[in-house]
Design a protein around this nucleic acid. Structure first.
Lengths: 193, 193
DNA sequence: CCATCCTATGTCACTCAGTGACAATAGTGT
DNA sequence: ACACTATTGTCACTGAGTGACATAGGATGG
């Protein structure tokens, strides 16, 4: 039951990743809504029930990676120098995050699928929502931040808006533009330095 | 089939509103997830099937009003004076919108329910997402806006962030604060005048 | 007043996501 | 070989949502 890293846990995560990749392929090929979980299970060679032991929901098969974001992000916010403004702090962390995300594979196909599937977009937002609280709290609890809950939440949500717009544009250009640069542009739009 | 205002259409909308109110009451009382659609149908005195002829989804019974926002909002954006900056334009329209929303009943209970139910939050974001494109387009197409798609979308998403944070804070204070004021505060936070 | 539409509704059967319970079956350590 | 434990499969179930079809009710034209 413990999430501590045993051989078991690692194997499990490997299987999960494999299944996610397979599912993504199917969804991209046949469409998310028109592909049933049973379809995925059949192709993957296990039962629907077992599949749901790896993923809580169908959407999770696609979102998987994104969902852990919250805690890590909040932690990095806390680690930023105290003299940094909230806005710059968020920009910096988001920037660093982007660099890491770029390494994962299939980002373009995955994002395209998410963008074109309302169900998936909804889930994604739900996830981001849960993270937002965590991040806003981290922002407020920085030494000497002097932020109230409302302002902290707004900053965080605005940063999320930057991420959103950047992802959307990145997708529109077929992955040609640099997401990190776009994010910077968004941040600067509202706070020209 | 036509949505034009006949006697029929008006009656239909009245029934819809009545059902929505009834459903909201049940959801608030028993919880959204733990209340089945059949429950609502039973109390309302019609079949589940008929209920789904008034609402496409269970969530729609709660969100109902919110979803028409998109087009109206976009229209008002187009009607703003051209010399206004995008940011001020959004602020003004959002401000006007708030005044109108305040008139609807049960806002507090409804919002509380939405806030505390992930499924509902997800749907709400989904709706907002659909509106965002419309509004961003309207913003870009204002005479002499000079905005690219990316920037327009970011502005719009950021305005959505302000609305979100304001709603959240408004709820936190039990409806004591003025949402319009909060929105102004958010807008000013990122663009002190 | 009756025949005729048209719409709202009910009924029934179905799909699909997700869950709980329990049995079967690995795999690991001793 | 033996016990222990995690993983999987099976089966039956709930709950949202849909499609097909039958029917009741209310307006309209003759």
């Amino acid at each position: 039951m413990e999430e501590a890293d045993g051989v078991r846990g690692r194997a499990r995560r490997a299987v999960r990743a494999e299944l996610a990749e397979l599912a993504l392929g199917l969804f991209v090929e046949r469409g998310f809504d028109t592909t049933t979980v049973d379809d995925v299970a059949r192709v993957a060679g296990l039962s629907k029930r077992s599949l749901f032991r790896y993923f809580a929901t169908k959407e999770d098969m696609v979102l998987g990676v994104v969902d852990v974001m919250g805690e890590g992000f909040a932690e990095e916010v806390r680690a930023r120098p105290a003299e940094e403004t909230p806005w710059d702090c968020l920009r910096a962390v988001l920037h660093a995050w982007e660099a890491r995300i770029r390494e994962s594979t299939d980002q373009l196909a995955r994002l395209r699928l998410i963008e074109s599937t309302p169900t998936l977009r909804a889930r994604l937002h739900q996830r981001r929502d849960e993270s937002r609280r965590l991040i806003a709290d981290a922002l407020r609890e920085r030494p000497g931040s002097g932020l109230d809950g409302f302002t902290a939440e707004f900053y965080t949500a605005a940063a999320g808006a930057a991420l959103d717009a950047a992802s959307s544009e990145w997708l529109r250009t077929g992955g040609a533009t640099d997401r990190a640069t776009l994010i910077d542009r968004a941040f600067t739009t509202l706070r020209p330095s």
